[in-house]
Simulated scan of single mutants.
Amino acid sequence: MKKAYQPGDILIFKAEDDFLSRSIAWLTNSDVSHSAMFYTKDSIVETIAPGVVQNRVCTGKGDFAYLLRLTPSKDSAPLIQAAKKYLDAGTQYNFPALLYLGGLLLCRRITPTKRLLSITERIMDAACLELDKLLQRLAKHPENRSMVCSQFVYQVYEDCGEAYRIHIHGALQNGFKQDNMLQETHTIRLLDLQEPAAISLAATKESDLDAVSDVKCVIRDVEEEENLIAQLYQALSSADTENSIAMDSIERDGSFEMVPIVNKFAGKLKKLTQVLGMDAPIDSLFVAPADFVYHAENLENLGEIQIERIR
């Protein structure tokens, strides 16, 4: 590590050995899956179920993470105050795992095999239902609107104004890890399947939200969700470029009804950006840990650090 850590520094944790972490890392073509921020010299703030928490930590042992710092460096006081606002409010984290994975599958490039598209369809349908619930919660509790974005750390820096804003080069891209880089000719971005007419879904009435998703695809318990995420990772990691499905084939044949589910999910996400008052593209909701490490123009990577949470 090049420099000593300080409050306001960003921690980007290496992916753990579970299927959710592995899937996030694979979809962002990286080795990371979680972010946090130093709050004091011996504590961090992060989002875990059910919300924003402060955890005491020690260094020199535990999980490996990249340590990042804004450059040129800024006073950490505004960052600490911004994070404190969420801690004091007991802010809940409103992006369930399947909603986040659905967003990554929509916005990041994938190799579209039949197996992966089938699982993606199920995840996106479940994500649509989660999005319905989220929109309903936002209507009842508008004070929590600012924390529905997928990365708490990104939002904290955003709250501090232009001087603190993290600039991600080229919007949201895949990471630079070369050993599992897929050939561009065999990958697609499902968001590019979206039809202009899908935006009309953004006008969906809140009273209709819970009736939009197919009840057959609801994920009913944690075990079922974990099994679906395991299937996703297995499909991602075993994707065969020779058996991938071309974009025009998906559009022409409606493979696994991907175009309708993409339209539905993208339309609901557009509704979310409207509720949040965001003048930004859909993929801005899905900033990933890899974007901090590999694509942030104004973050300096100070090297690796080991962090252990003290329970």
Rank of each mutant, 00 (worst) to 15 (best):
residue 274 Q to D: 09
residue 275 V to R: 15
residue 234 Q to P: 04
residue 66 Y to N: 12
residue 182 L to F: 12
residue 219 I to H: 06
residue 189 R to Y: 05
residue 101 L to M: 04
residue 165 R to S: 07
residue 209 L to S: 00
residue 148 V to M: 11
residue 102 G to V: 03
residue 39 Y to C: 00
residue 128 C to I: 09
residue 286 F to H: 03
residue 186 H to V: 04
residue 33 S to Y: 06
residue 36 A to Y: 11
residue 306 Q to D: 03
residue 300 E to I: 01
residue 126 A to L: 00
residue 30 S to T: 08
residue 8 G to A: 00
residue 84 K to N: 07
residue 63 D to R: 15
residue 208 D to F: 06
residue 150 S to Y: 08
residue 267 G to R: 02
residue 299 L to S: 04
residue 251 E to Q: 13
residue 147 M to K: 11
residue 217 C to P: 09
residue 100 Y to F: 12
residue 229 I to G: 00
residue 80 I to Y: 08
residue 203 A to C: 14
residue 304 E to N: 11
residue 222 V to I: 12
residue 233 Y to S: 04
residue 1 M to I: 06
residue 133 K to N: 14
residue 131 L to M: 07
residue 152 F to P: 09
residue 67 L to R: 03
residue 30 S to G: 06
residue 291 D to K: 07
residue 191 L to V: 05
residue 88 D to E: 07
residue 86 Y to P: 05
residue 132 D to R: 03
residue 180 N to E: 01
residue 261 I to P: 13
residue 24 I to Y: 03
residue 279 D to T: 08
residue 270 K to N: 14
residue 264 K to R: 15
residue 215 V to E: 05
residue 106 L to V: 03
residue 179 D to T: 06
residue 286 F to T: 03
residue 126 A to E: 05
residue 121 E to M: 03
residue 127 A to W: 01
residue 112 P to F: 02
residue 208 D to K: 11
residue 172 L to Q: 09
residue 269 L to Q: 03
residue 228 L to P: 09
residue 60 G to N: 06
residue 280 A to G: 08
residue 311 R to G: 13
residue 212 V to R: 07
residue 202 A to Q: 14
residue 14 K to G: 07
residue 279 D to W: 06
residue 233 Y to W: 00
residue 277 G to T: 01
residue 285 L to A: 02
residue 271 K to I: 02
residue 231 Q to V: 00
residue 95 F to H: 13
residue 285 L to Q: 08
residue 115 R to P: 05
residue 49 A to E: 15
residue 260 P to D: 01
residue 273 T to M: 12
residue 186 H to A: 11
residue 277 G to R: 00
residue 185 T to P: 01
residue 277 G to C: 06
residue 74 K to R: 14
residue 36 A to K: 10
residue 139 A to W: 14
residue 191 L to M: 12
residue 31 D to A: 09
residue 169 H to A: 12
residue 136 Q to I: 14
